[in-house]
Amino acid sequence: MYLTSVAFLLAVIAGAAQFTALSLMLDQMPIIVVIIVGLTVNLRMALYSTTLATHLGAAPFRTRALLAYSILDHSFALAYTKHQENPEMTLSQKLSFYFGTTGLVGAIWIVGTGIGAWVGTRIPDWLALDFAIPIAFIALAAPALRTVPQVSAALTGLCYPLHSQKSPWSGPDCCIQCSSSARHRTGTPLGG
């Protein structure tokens, strides 16, 4: 079980997609549906890749292949903000910064996944670990909120998913917040 959790993480490198896939699997959905919905949750990574490519696009093929595999919400936000604020950075400095953040976040995440699979549902609810995700994401986005257009974009981003909660096919389990239910049902760790 621990090994499967960590292997799942290493292969997919996407917390939200993993939770969604697990949740749909437990609901006995067909494999193809599980994969398509999991990839849909991951679509935001395509946007991350394109955005980061404006800074790191000149990297060699192998480096770009590794970048495509290792992109995380956290390393994307940290690296992009850093690159924007320091346009004088060279490509190798930018790459070092990116791999530094992704390596650190990735290492903690892998260890956390292993511990989570081991400890599982014994983590008490009052710790409210489910709230670690929003806290981390707010901390990542807040420093980038400088101008009126940026705040407007944030407010739009905030309202849209609240408004579309009841959309068909979005389902209660088809978004990142299935994390806590999936964790309770499978003992799968919280992460990503």
Partner: peptide, 23 residues
Amino acid sequence: HLGYTVVAVMPGIIAPLVFLPRT
């Protein structure tokens, strides 16, 4: 346009978790 990715996507991900927590 791509410069708005961080500020637009992150709030979208966390909005349901903050306002309508599943727990």
